[in-house]
Nucleic acid binder design. Structure first.
Lengths: 84, 84, 84, 84
DNA sequence: CACTGGAAAATGCCGC
DNA sequence: GCGGCATTTTCCAGTG
């Protein structure tokens, strides 16, 4: 194997390692999340409802951003119409 | 509000915060991952293939072989030529 | 509301309806597809593999071969044994 | 090839055909959708905004269903029988 | 012609 | 163990 591909191989290997490292961390966080839900369950909370609450809070956030985006969108659409 | 439900509310709030915190961290890692793939792309690697490689490494060898075998089986039943 | 915008409103409404109609039909087809896969599963077929087969058939031969070649290249650079 | 696998092959082939047929139909609908959006654009509508409107109508629908689901969820968590 | 955002598909997880 | 749901990942069309 020549030097060029040897270098590329090293770079590839490095990317693969970084990716696998990050995915490992993500997996750990997923497990932490599962644990927190379990703990909540152990404290008498209904996990399904808890998830729903989290989802709704996320959605409200998202919704707010959507509204903003829509306003921007209309604004630019009207701006473009005027420009032409 | 009585003491009992006040306590429950606090506990609930605490769970929600922990969950949202963890989800935030996961989201950050996902962005980091995206960045690494971008960087790899910038270095001339094919992201799609890279993802496939990562997936293959995740899979155990025998598992992968079983899957390949099944694909071959179905493919040959359908008269498909497989790439060598 | 004046005539011009009344007309535009009607036209808009008509587009929205046509779009939603088409999306509804698409959704129905997606459900049909799910059903067929379920039925295949009930007949002993491995759905995951079946999906892979369908994907392979969609891909042109040379395209598939190029992809396989790249995977081999990356895999061998990483010292991964490929299933034969 | 013996009779058993010959039969299985036929069944497999039949599933593959049904799936590909359905996917073909879906693809056609996607193209129809694209055409409608194009036509709307030709009539002076902003496609991006149009898509947003469609999405919002879908979301409002979805939202309503979510609310219903949440009520059911709380009701069942509290052990309340809901009217059927 | 690469990039972004949005649609579609696939995977994994949960309760039953 | 299976089906349904939610999340994640992949794909693709439109845009600059």
């Amino acid at each position: 194997m020549n030097d060029v591909s040897a270098v590329a191989t090293d770079v590839l290997r490095s990317f693969v390692e970084r990716i696998e490292r990050l995915e490992e961390e993500k997996k750990n966080l997923s497990e932490d999340l599962k644990d927190v839900y379990s703990e909540a369950k152990g404290n008498g909370f209904d996990v399904k409802i808890l998830r729903k609450i989290i989802a709704m809070r996320k959605m409200e956030d998202h919704e707010r951003q959507e509204q903003e985006a829509l306003i921007d969108l209309y604004a630019s659409a009207l701006g473009m119409a005027r420009a032409e």
